[in-house]
Amino acid sequence: MAPLAFGLAYAGFLALALAMDRHHRDLLGGVPSRMGRLLFRGGGWMLLGLSIAPCCALWGPSFGAIAWCGLLTLAAFTLVSLTTYAPRAALLAAALLPALGLATWFRLS
């Protein structure tokens, strides 16, 4: 379930980045509309919030919260490296990582 949490956190951060003009321009081109910005921002925070659930399910509340902080950091670093060196992969990863996480979860359960 750790890959799922990581994937959700990554997708969440990417959405938050897309709500910002500079990163939106670099990744998708153009600036987001007002509506799009709201959607990106809301979706991003929602995904980040969701990503704590697998952590707590896996490690319990106290270790889960710590693992969540660590995974958020790791996801944000991954996003920054990808957007800098492989922007196209950064977008692809947002779809692939949560899917991969879900797949490993189903395979294990």
């Binding site: 490690w59 106290s62 270790f63 710590i66 693992a67 660590g70 995974l71 950091t73």
Partner: peptide, 25 residues
């Protein structure tokens, strides 16, 4: 709890890696 966080003695390999990476950061 503070000591537990600082020493990170718990045997959860994945969490340990996260602490190690954070330490490197």
């Amino acid at each position: 709890v503070a000591y537990g966080l600082h020493f990170a003695r718990f045997e959860l390999p994945f969490l340990h890696v996260l602490f190690f990476l954070s330490g490197l950061a």
